[in-house]
């Protein structure tokens, strides 16, 4: 009799384990839509804490929020900064150096000039661009303890790296709260934590840049960042020409490398964010060279002629949704 009762109790426990608690929050922060999906007993508390923390980070890092530390730094040229802002600034400097300046943290004057901050497109003249580019290239950041200083002209815009850094920070916060299964999505940035409650890997789709109602393909993912930069995310159209928001620091104009979507997959969300923007600007050839030299990440690049280039590290776990729509080429 006891044995039967034990078996029945075990079955009950197993069944209760099937429907693990899940909490999701949707909100807007960092100029994008944020979705956190968290599994586990305390997922509700964890989701609230994660949302609160991200809103706090947004207030620290936004170049346009008058209360932010970056705003204070841009306007006063010197400011006291928190440990988080200081770390993000030093990461921005690091990726700028790593990419030979392709990742650029000083694009604020150019983003303003094109109207991406105000939402109203203006096409700067060649003379204006020359002056603005000089400003952007002259800027450097000096960090000392809890103080940051801007040297040169222009201002800092961390839009190309802040979401990735924030995702890493939120993932760490959730881990410290005992969360072992979650997926974070900040606009184009996805960060997976652990695996799904049933033990299978997360399935992350990459949007098709030619048709945002479809997927380009799917990646099986565990504990990593997947970040996509696309020309379709923010843009203006004028006289039939599309002006997207990823500005090439060489030309001061929307990047025109032949790449229409760049996805970076790696363990580090900050790296994935900074490099997805960079590879979009570099194009296929330079990105492949950079990948061979630097390593530590994989990429998926979609070129405007309909070819999808994937590095060999991701080729096994990336599948095209419609193999007839694109030609797949593996980079080694």
């Amino acid at each position: 009799m006891k044995r039967i009762v034990c078996i029945l109790i075990a079955v009950m426990l197993l069944l209760s384990g099937c429907s693990e608690e899940k909490s999701s929050v949707n909100f807007m922060a960092m100029d994008t839509i944020v979705t956190f999906t968290i599994y586990g007993d305390s997922s509700g508390d964890a989701a609230s804490a994660a949302k609160e923390e991200l809103l706090k980070l947004d207030e620290l890092f936004s170049a346009y929020n008058e209360k932010s530390e970056i705003y204070a730094l841009n306007h006063n040229r010197q400011a006291a900064v928190s440990e988080l802002t200081s770390e993000l600034l030093s990461q921005a400097v690091f990726y700028s150096e790593l990419t030979g300046g392709v990742f650029c943290y000083s694009m604020l004057p150019l983003m303003d000039a094109w109207g991406f901050s105000s939402g109203e497109l203006t096409i700067p003249s060649a003379e204006e661009l020359e002056v603005l580019l000089e400003q952007c290239h002259s800027l450097s950041i000096s960090l000392s303890g809890s103080s940051a200083e801007l040297i040169g002209d222009g201002g800092v815009d961390l839009g190309g790296i802040a979401k990735g850094y924030a995702a890493v920070h939120i993932a760490e916060l959730l881990s410290s709260m005992g969360v072992t299964s979650a997926v974070l999505s900040l606009g184009g940035n996805v960060q997976t934590i652990g695996v799904k409650p049933d033990g299978s890997k997360w399935l992350v789709a990459v949007l098709d840049p030619s048709d945002t109602n479809a997927y380009l393909g799917m990646i099986e993912s565990e504990d990593e960042a997947i970040v996509t930069s696309g020309a379709y995310q923010r843009y203006f159209e004028q006289d039939g020409v599309r002006y997207h928001h990823i500005i090439d620091p060489e030309t001061g104009c929307p990047a025109d490398s032949g790449v229409i979507s760049a996805t970076v997959i790696c363990d580090n969300g900050t790296m994935a964010d900074a490099l997805s923007t960079s590879l979009f600007i570099m194009g296929v050839e330079k990105s492949s060279e950079f990948w061979r030299e630097t390593g530590g990440f994989d990429f998926i690049l979609v070129s405007e002629d309909g070819t999808v280039f994937v590095t060999e590290g991701i080729a096994d776990r990336f599948s095209l949704s419609d193999p007839n729509a694109y030609t797949l080429e593996v980079i080694s």
Binding site: I33, T35, T37, V183, L184, S185, G187, G188, N189, V190, T192, K196, W202, L203, V204, A205, V206, L207, P209, T212, Y215, M218, I219, I226, V227, T228, S229, G230, Q233, S261, T263
Partner: peptide
């Protein structure tokens, strides 16, 4: 069809 858990690039 197969539904993803998250979408990169949206």
């Amino acid at each position: 069809g197969q539904q993803p858990d998250a979408i990169a690039g949206r």
